[in-house]
Design a protein around this nucleic acid. Structure first.
Lengths: 198, 198
DNA sequence: ATAGGAACAGACAGGTCTGTCTCTTTTATC
DNA sequence: GATAAAAGAGACAGACCTGTCTGTTCCTAT
């Protein structure tokens, strides 16, 4: 090996495409963004695009799977930062949301948006979106369990629904207030439930 | 006037188009339904379509305005039927939602779907959607005020957010359970608030 | 009865969409 | 340095999109 590829490998076409797709799909919606635009903005040849992804639908699924992972990492680290103690983590979810709602790029939940935009339930993107929500539900259940709540499974479903409502309301209103309202609702729920398992 | 148009007037092209648009836009999404399909399924000539509506965007706005009216009438009559007494009406909203979620045609809130599909905030459809949500908020505030709740304005915002969350969750899950969860949350909120103004 | 407008039917234009294909240039491996 | 795969550039096909325009038929009002 004469050269070893010592030089840091440049980003692959797939990586660049995914990065651009994340921005454009989230910002403008899936159907509003054509393959030609994805190619132009990522500086990739059309043949490279279709070598990396079998179709646009494939890219949509890959995008959502990547975003799912990033989103859960974001939530976990945000919650850990905002609430060091396990018992405080569940409610910190809504503080994390509050911060996210204030970002100028915020345009709702990419997964909800995908489900509503792609009405067909069998679209690969719709499947990815449902997988994401199930993952988040499991993450919430884990937080609630560690915080000592007995019926953490039922609570996780409620929390997920509060999150969905907060996101939609924040988009509608163009304000982050919905996060605080959801947090107060969550506080009520937790206060009403039998608090600890032991 | 010899003939007086005694005979019941047949439906106008605009009415037929709106009826088909209501079905197709809601079922498949706005961008997924082309003008040609609307024309074919409503049995209308293309010239008639563009005589009735200046553009497809115009039709979208007209559709949403019509649906807004129908939706509020539906909610009001459902609530009146489910809860004759003013103090019971606010929570009956969620029983009405429950019934709606069970319909096989249910595919979420047309207005939320429109906002998320048409990312552009200045689209006439987006404006119609925001007008609708504001109307519903006012309707909820009225129900809550008549039920005797002092801070009915704040409560209406919370109820609207609970409704949004329930709708999204119901679509996600493909089950109507979210309506009951939202109702229980609403019960908690009402119980926690200072109940009456007098 | 007849004139005028509304509705139907469909061709057409100009653009955009996804996906395929060719050709050239770069990059990596031996 | 030679060879092969990867990537860039872009033409092309076929379908679909919105919106316009030209005829023909029907209904209605005088």
């Amino acid at each position: 090996m004469t050269v070893h590829t010592t030089r840091a490998k440049r980003t692959t076409p797939a990586e660049r495409i995914l990065k651009v797709a994340d921005k454009l799909f989230y910002q403008d919606g899936i159907r509003a963004v054509g393959v030609d635009r994805l190619i132009a903005e990522s500086g990739v040849a059309k043949a490279s695009f279709y070598r990396a992804f079998a179709s646009k639908d494939d890219l949509v699924a890959a995008w959502l799977d990547q975003r799912d992972q990033q989103w859960r990492i974001w939530l976990q680290t945000s919650v850990d930062q905002l609430a060091p103690r396990a018992q405080d983590k569940p409610l910190a979810v809504f503080d994390a949301l509050d911060a996210r709602f204030r970002q100028s790029t915020f345009r709702g939940c990419a997964f909800i948006n995908t489900i509503t935009e792609l009405a067909r339930l069998d679209h690969p993107g719709a499947h990815a979106a449902r997988r994401h929500k199930e993952s988040v539900r499991a993450l919430l259940a884990s937080l609630l369990k560690d915080a000592g709540y007995k019926d953490f499974e039922a609570l996780a479903l409620i929390f997920l629904q509060l999150i969905d409502g907060a996101i939609v309301a924040a988009v509608r209103e163009g304000k982050p207030d919905a996060a605080l309202r959801a947090r107060q609702l969550a506080e009520l729920v937790l206060a009403a439930r039998s608090k600890k398992t032991q």
